[in-house]
């Protein structure tokens, strides 16, 4: 059984195993397929106005499936590996061990935001950006540059207290847990704010180029599970059906041919959180 752990609690060996698996998935060319899938999802969603991956209720089940697929690729390389989660309400500084050279590496240099240390530094030869929207071949970050702080726990608790998953019109501006957690209900808040805080590639539509993407989204995913535990009688997903241009509970979520939000509700069949 896959158990996802808080990254702050990983041993040095566990960190190395995760990093090594990520590097191998990258070397195999599989990693870039995930980056491409994310970029394509963003583009198609924006072009069609049918918000599958972001800005709508299926944000959470879409990313849950995305992470499950990625985690499966990691586990083909090393069956002991799972995606750690980054609780950005607790490990909320540039000095966090998350950004140490032995784990994800640190912030970028001032000249071009290029990450210069750790396993994902371009100079190490293992991490070239192949799927992108700009010409930077190196991983870019500028931690705490655009926004100085990460979302506080009080914001997370306020979102968790909301009894409703999502509400009409089921896109930007909707009220409810999903919108509050995604951050589309406010300016630079929650999930969106974390992307912006990291800056560089995390701010772009090819954000999975930064491996912290997976740790960030594992925490977002955990919060969805936490929310459901707090509101066992609330519908874990809305809308239930019949909503035009919105992924309903039993609609398939592209690019997967037969995965619905309903299929994603019980995460414990895939993994648990420690």
């Amino acid at each position: 059984m896959t158990v996802r752990k808080n990254q702050a609690n990983l041993t040095a060996a566990e960190k190395k195993a995760f990093v090594d698996a990520v590097l191998e998935v990258k070397r195999l060319g599989v990693y870039d397929e995930f980056v491409l899938a994310h970029r394509t999802r963003f583009s198609i969603d924006m072009n069609t106005g049918v918000y599958v991956g972001h800005f709508g209720p299926s944000f959470l089940p879409w990313h849950r499936k995305f992470l499950i697929d990625f985690e499966n690729e990691l586990r083909k390389v090393d069956a002991s590996v799972s995606i750690p989660y980054w609780d950005w309400t607790a490990d909320n500084t540039v000095g966090s061990s998350l950004w140490a050279p032995a784990f994800l590496g640190g912030t970028g240099r001032p000249l071009d935001d290029q990450v210069m240390d750790g396993p994902f530094a371009h100079s190490g030869g293992n991490w070239t950006i192949n799927v992108s929207v700009d010409s930077r071949p190196f991983l870019a970050r500028n931690l705490a540059h655009r926004v100085p702080t990460l979302p506080p726990r009080s914001d997370v608790d306020a979102a968790l207290a909301m009894p409703t998953y999502d509400s009409p019109p089921f896109r930007d501006g909707s009220t409810g847990f999903r919108s509050a957690l995604e951050g589309s209900a406010g300016y630079m808040s929650m999930h969106n704010r974390v992307h912006t805080w990291v800056w560089g590639h995390m701010e772009t539509s090819v954000s999975p180029n930064d491996p912290v993407f997976w740790l960030h989204h594992a925490f977002v995913d955990k919060l969805w599970a936490d929310w459901h535990a707090l509101h066992p009688t609330s519908a874990e997903y809305l809308p239930a059906g019949g909503t035009v241009d919105v992924i309903d509970l039993n609609d398939t979520m592209p690019p997967w041919p037969n995965t619905t939000p309903q299929d994603m509700l019980d995460h414990t069949q895939f993994y648990t959180y420690a």
Binding site: F42, F55, V133, R171, G173, S184, Y187, E203, T204, S205
Partner: peptide, 17 residues
């Protein structure tokens, strides 16, 4: 791209408005 009344974003700054 435009997000209704919530403003604009781009592929470079996709998580801001």
């Amino acid at each position: 791209m435009q997000h209704g009344r919530n403003g604009w974003s781009s592929t470079i700054n996709h998580y801001e408005r």
